[in-house]
Amino acid sequence: MRMAVLIKQVPATENIKIDEKTGTMIREGVEAELNPLDLHAVEEAVRLKERLGGEITVISMGPPAARRAIASAIAMGCDRGFLISDRKFAGSDTLATSLTLAAGVRKAGEFDLIFAGERATDGETGQVGPAVGRYLGASVFTYVSKVASVEGGRIVLERAVEGGHETVAAPLPALLCVVKEINTPRLCTLAGKMRARRTEIPLLDAASLGIPDAKLGLGGSPTKVVRVMYPQITRNGKIFSAADDPDGAVRAVFDLLREHGAIEEATSDAE
């Protein structure tokens, strides 16, 4: 099985800053980590390799520091990695990113299965995975919660959708955006880390991908961020202490529920 995993390095969730002028995230000087939801994509690829054999290529688009995220995926059991990086990619929206990533995947090889996480915890769009799949002409599956079988050039899998799970099938090559419930990611072993350190991670830049400049980065992005705001989410609500006033607290909640129609009027007389 020839597999690829698309991963993203994201700012560790606590401290994120935005450049007010360009409306894009400031990535320099912020502690970064491998997008937590991508760990499940890496893990699923590694499990399939253990079952069916094959090779896993990790591909990430980002600044040079994203090599660290690629290395940690290799440490979990992937075999090789590519970094897609160029100043020309700066400011890419999801369309430009997907086009660039798809070109990088083609450059990295031919694949039967491509894995991605459900979405990244910074941009939170979930659009890049399916869009890359579309650019590659692969079968596209989002919200994948279980891979049931891969045989005879066909994949059967489950998707977690509103109200339940659907089982669907399509031919390979396929791109799967997996959800967290699909597995529990393993920790890297020391041996894995050593191997990651020895593995070279080649660079794919704009020139090597052969995409016209007009389709790259900010200029190649149909969407433009025009304003960025930092909302305050403090509500200054009413706080009760159950120890001091247990009934008052419960009564306040009850009144509020009744006000919203969650409890019918008549029930207040019944207690």
Binding site: G237, I239, S241, A242
Partner: peptide
Amino acid sequence: FRVADIGIIGN
């Protein structure tokens, strides 16, 4: 509690 309209400190 920062985002609560009603908060109850209790079990």
